[in-house]
């Protein structure tokens, strides 16, 4: 019997980032669904429970990824969330570790810098999916 493919949700407002991650993650043997805005991401999360969610940080809002992460964790506490961002390098801002208050509501399991090597990304995804 065929095992059901794991489902990965990718939300990013850059269509090329979506295409690349979709390509890489499909190659790992996973099913991929995508959304190109926080709003569309929220809509998908309403009715779909992915096995892993990957969010870009800056979309319509500069903290869209955090908002999606928060909402996803609230609805599906067991679905791991990865936030991919270039924010640290751009603004020098470190997030997630700024204050206790923030740590409490930003509940991504893994932060990844944009431009990460393919094999690293694939390793992190496997780790979060406990494969």
């Amino acid at each position: 019997m065929l095992e059901k493919k794991k489902l990965v949700l990718i939300v990013d407002d850059d269509i090329d980032q979506i295409e690349q991650n979709k390509f890489l993650i499909s190659n790992m043997g996973f099913e991929v669904i995508t959304a190109d805005s926080q709003k569309e991401g929220e809509e998908i999360l309403q009715n779909t429970k992915p096995d892993l969610a990957i969010f870009d940080l800056m979309m319509e809002n500069k903290d869209s990824g955090f908002i999606l992460s928060y909402k996803s964790k609230k609805k599906y506490p067991d679905v791991p969330v990865m936030i991919i961002t270039a924010v640290t390098a751009e603004t020098g801002l470190l997030f997630g570790t700024e204050s206790e208050e923030e740590k409490q509501w930003i509940k991504a399991d893994k932060y990844i810098e944009k431009g990460i090597r393919t094999d690293q990304l694939q390793r992190e995804i496997k780790k979060l999916l406990k494969l």
């Binding site: 190659n27 431009g115 090597r117």
Partner: peptide
């Protein structure tokens, strides 16, 4: 900070494609 984001996005995108090509994925 917005400008650097706007300038970096295409670089990231192009770099990503080149990596995929470089690895012959």
């Amino acid at each position: 900070s917005v400008l650097s984001h706007e300038l970096k996005s295409p670089i990231n995108a192009i770099e990503g494609y080149l990596k995929i090509m470089s690895d012959r994925q």
